[in-house]
Nucleic acid binder design. Structure first.
Lengths: 185, 185
DNA sequence: ACTAACATGTAACACGTTACATGATTGT
DNA sequence: ACAATCATGTAACGTGTTACATGTTAGT
């Protein structure tokens, strides 16, 4: 039950239409919570029905017409409740590790195919890492340290550290692959 | 579409019944791909219908009777195909980061509630980290380095590095919280 | 008039979660 | 006989994914 709260957070930061939300979920919010426009429209309907948000009155509601939403007090209260509630970490699911284990179980033929994709993932994570580092330089110069800035920076640091982990681990994995006997590749 | 391949991998390593699989998904495989017994039984039914696995003939099929499965050649081929296929990283979803951003958007009241849960998560990740480190000492002494061992060790290293990231980042986050002005807590 | 981009949606399906149901085996 | 545990399943629901449908606005 996190998507509605992600949307409430986004709308609290700035009232938006469905498509504007979709764009924001492709950028900043999407770095740690992704969502497609189909999910967003479905959830906007639910949140409005529950009285957590409302459409800004100015615009007429019709297909193809932009419709912006804002958070109501009930929505803000629900978000505060959810944020403070104790939650267990979600069970972890990572396809790459699974594929490595499958490769080990299959043996020779299994190991051969996966190396190319490891290189591709390494490249993707390197790009994500430099994107985060650019954001850090641009948006968090030394001295910007209101409580809001500190929290946002904390989240960005997590992204940077995670991408650093991936680039290091994938590099290490490829080195290990290079050392495997030839009949396993 | 990863759960069927996780089950194929587990059965390839060792033919098992549904409950045995459930137990294994609570331990080693579950460290990077979790699944409940309901998911496993549903998927075993599908895999059998597709001809990827079969029940070991010895035992009679009845409710409450143990039923073990083994991988058929078609299943092994499908697993090899899937392992070698190029796959994009899954969109990332991390509740903790979302909650921090929500706290920042809400302001004072939002920040107050989350600190306790950060401490709890830090404790959980510390425990997971020492569990992984024990496994490394027990199962991967120096000198054990067949291709299979190397791949398994690689996966374990990823787990150790990820838990190390979490303990470091959560510790840093709590230090930042301690520096926030009092009215934000 | 046509096309592309914008904007909002529907439908069908796959996957994951939670609660519950049922029979078999073992210990007391 | 009873309870606990083992073992396999069903049902309902929520969330995420993919494909498609429909109207609007702006440019040529």
């Amino acid at each position: 039950m996190s998507l509605p709260h992600a949307i409430l957070t986004a709308l609290l930061e700035k009232p938006s239409s469905g498509l504007e939300l979709t764009r924001r979920f492709d950028r900043s919010i999407g770095y740690f919570w992704s969502a497609t426009h189909q999910q967003i429209y479905r959830e906007l309907g639910k949140l409005e029905a529950e009285g957590h948000i409302r459409a800004l009155p100015s615009e007429q509601p019709a297909r193809g017409q932009k419709k912006s939403y804002e958070v109501l007090p009930a929505g803000r209260a629900e978000l505060a409740r959810w944020t403070a509630a104790s939650q267990d970490p979600k069970p972890y699911r990572e396809t790459l590790f699974l594929r490595l284990r499958a490769a080990a179980a299959i043996g020779t033929e299994g190991v051969a195919g996966i190396e190319t994709d490891l290189r591709r993932h390494l490249e993707l994570h390197r790009r994500q890492l430099s994107e985060y580092e650019e954001i850090e330089q641009r948006d968090f110069p030394p001295g910007k340290d209101s409580p809001q800035d500190r929290l946002q920076h904390l989240i960005l640091r997590a992204g940077i550290d995670l991408e650093t982990f991936w680039t290091r681990w994938l590099t290490h994995a490829l080195e290990e692959f290079a050392q495997l006997p030839d009949q396993s590749r």
